[in-house]
Every structure is written in structure tokens, then in C-alpha cells.
Amino acid sequence: MALPAPLRSIQHHLRTANEHEKRDPVVAYYCRLYAMQTGMKLDSKTPECRKFLVKLMDQLETMKKELSDSDSITQEVVGNAHIENYALKMFLYADNEDRGGRFHKNMIKSFYTASLLLDVLSVFGELSEENIQHRKYARWKATYIHNCLKSGETPQ
């Protein structure tokens, strides 16, 4: 289903959910939960947005049933740790590549995905200062290295 324009800002989190459907369904579930919560704040009144959000809710309810034997789904405190660990793993991989001077698409994507998953952590409560800083750094690095590779410059 096409994403209505007012909900555009959740498109990257929904894409991350799709990419993790098989690899890590817990990540996919919480990305969609974040998208749902954010989408409801953005626009849940216009018919096209409401229709989209109802479908997303259907999907979340189905996923919750399918994953009912996972503690990361039934206990949000476990889910919080799962998403945080996953985000930091992505961040550390990209940071290690960066410090080793290995600049490539995969590490850019890892920095960006880490920043999206740090957004997702907000479904569990306020982000820690450390996570806010990691998110800012990861997003900036992803943009900076992407632009360098595009223009043929070597990132510093």
C-alpha cells in the first residue's frame, strides 16, 4: 500500500522493518510500532492516512500473535534491550569500518540504520543522552560519507 504524503517521515523506518522481516522479526515489529505511533501523531484523521494506519495496525497485531513466544515482544523491557543492542552493533560495525578507513555503501547503510533504530528506542521512553549523541553522530556520518563517495572525495 502506498504511503500517504503526510506520513512520509516514517518511510525509512517502514523500509527497515521490511528489510528485517526474516532476518530479525523483533526489529521489524518495533520499527512498525514506532512508525504506527509516529504516524498517529502526524495524521490519523484524513481517510487515506487512517486507512494506511489501520492496515499497519492489522499487521502489528498479526505479528504480535506470530511472535507470542518471544520475550522481546511480550516484555517491552526485553524488546528495548534487543533493539538497543542491535542498533549499537550496527553502529560499532560502521564505526570500526570508518576508523579503519574502509568507506563503502554497507557501512553508510549501517550508520543510517543505527540512527533509525535509535529513533525506534523512543517507543520505550525518553532516549538517554548517550543514545541521542550516537544517533546524531551516526546520521551525520552516513550523510557525510555518502556525499564524499558521491563527489569522489576521501572522507577525513
Binding site: 505511533q37 498517529m40 484523521k45 487512517r50 494506519l53 489501520v54 497485531e61 511480550t74 516484555q75 517491552e76
Partner: peptide, 27 residues
């Protein structure tokens, strides 16, 4: 008509909020 449609929208919105609360109820 506009108050009726806004009332329908608000009811559907509440329903969505309720579903979200139920979804997040810890088992």
C-alpha cells in the same frame, strides 16, 4: 454533515488508539 464526519473520524481515531494500547499491554 461536517460535524458528523468529524465525529466519525474521532471515533475511528479512538478505536486506533485503543488497539494500540491493547497491543502494548504486557502479557
Amino acid at each position: 454533515t461536517s460535524s458528523l464526519s468529524s465525529s466519525v473520524a474521532s471515533t475511528e481515531q479512538d478505536e486506533l488508539s485503543q488497539r494500540l494500547s491493547r497491543l502494548r499491554d504486557q502479557v
